[in-house]
């Protein structure tokens, strides 16, 4: 089949190929490579400077804690919701499955505003009550975790649902007839069959969570050394004319997300084809 297309490949095919390569080169490849060269203008100094700054280290640690917490929450929630959506019928299922996608298209600033309106310490719907029992959400780590969890919410579900639908329930029914209980069926049969979809979803969620900026900016208060995350450091450094620092931090974040993509593209052929 491939041979026949090769034989028939006209000038249009080459033109399209050229167009696509040029488009992606100017839009993605060249700009991304410039960030790398800008970072290493003066060798590794800019990166090591970064780790010498305690505020940056605190920011990186906060970003990591928030991202990992959000990914754990979203994975547990995501797998649970996927099972419910695929395996059970209940009223309101269609609405729920459509609403799950909502966080992907809501502006991060709106996400931040929404959380502040409910959990804000002064005038929020639930904030003052929570603060009375000693839980501060906005301008604190829980708020950052919630904002991060909100924006990455659908990613695991979107990966797991199609695989779960495709796998079907025959094997589980067989196991059930052989006397396996619900937990055994879940751990021995359901989980292994969606394992790669979960890994794929987790990797995407992690990349998204580490990079969240707008929502975190609104809920965190952006306090240096306390609630400032890595993406906020990039902005602050750039606006304070510390371009080297901004590029170095951006490079670190970009490295992690590109690593995530490479992992994903290595996994994908095995699970989907």
């Amino acid at each position: 089949m491939a041979r026949s297309t090769f034989g028939r490949k006209g000038p249009v095919a080459y033109l399209l190929r050229l167009l696509v390569i040029a488009y992606l080169f100017f839009l993605v490849a060249w700009p991304v490579s410039l960030v790398v060269t800008n970072t290493f203008d003066e060798g590794f100094v800019s990166i090591s400077d970064l780790f010498a700054d305690p505020d940056v280290v605190t920011a990186l640690r906060l970003t990591l804690i928030a991202a990992v917490s959000a990914v754990v929450i979203n994975t547990v929630f995501g797998v649970g919701i996927s099972l419910l959506l695929v395996r059970y019928e209940f009223p309101g299922k269609r609405a729920l499955s459509a609403l799950i996608d909502l966080p992907l298209s809501v502006s991060p600033i709106v996400v931040g505003l929404a959380l502040v309106l409910v959990y804000g310490g002064r005038e929020g719907w639930l904030g003052p009550t929570l603060e009375r029992v000693g839980i501060q959400v906005i301008f604190s780590t829980p708020g950052i975790v919630m904002a991060t969890a909100f924006v990455a919410l659908p990613l695991v579900i979107r990966e797991v649902v199609p695989v779960l639908t495709e796998v079907g329930i025959e094997q589980e029914q067989a196991a059930e007839s052989l006397g396996a209980n619900a937990w055994q069926r879940f751990v021995r049969i359901t989980l292994p069959s969606v394992k790669w979809a979960i890994v794929y979803g987790v990797v995407l969620s992690l990349a998204r969570s580490l990079g969240e900026f707008g929502a975190v900016k609104v809920v965190s208060g952006n306090v240096l050394g306390e609630t400032r995350t890595a993406t906020l450091v990039v902005e602050e450094k750039y606006l304070n004319f510390d371009q080297q620092g901004a590029y170095a931090t951006a490079f670190l974040l970009a490295m992690v997300s590109v690593a995530c993509i490479v992992v994903v593209s290595l996994i994908r052929p095995k699970s989907h084809d």
């Binding site: 390569i21 700009p31 991304v32 800008n38 990079g211 969240e212 902005e235 997300s257 994903v264």
Partner: peptide, 27 residues
């Protein structure tokens, strides 16, 4: 061609503030 595949996903995975910085370096 495999490189193009990765290029397509970069905008999705890259933190948005970094995306801004990336474009700033060329434009």
């Amino acid at each position: 061609k495999a490189v193009l595949e990765i290029l397509i996903d970069i905008p999705f995975a890259l933190p948005t503030i970094v995306a801004g910085l990336v474009l700033l370096s060329l434009y």
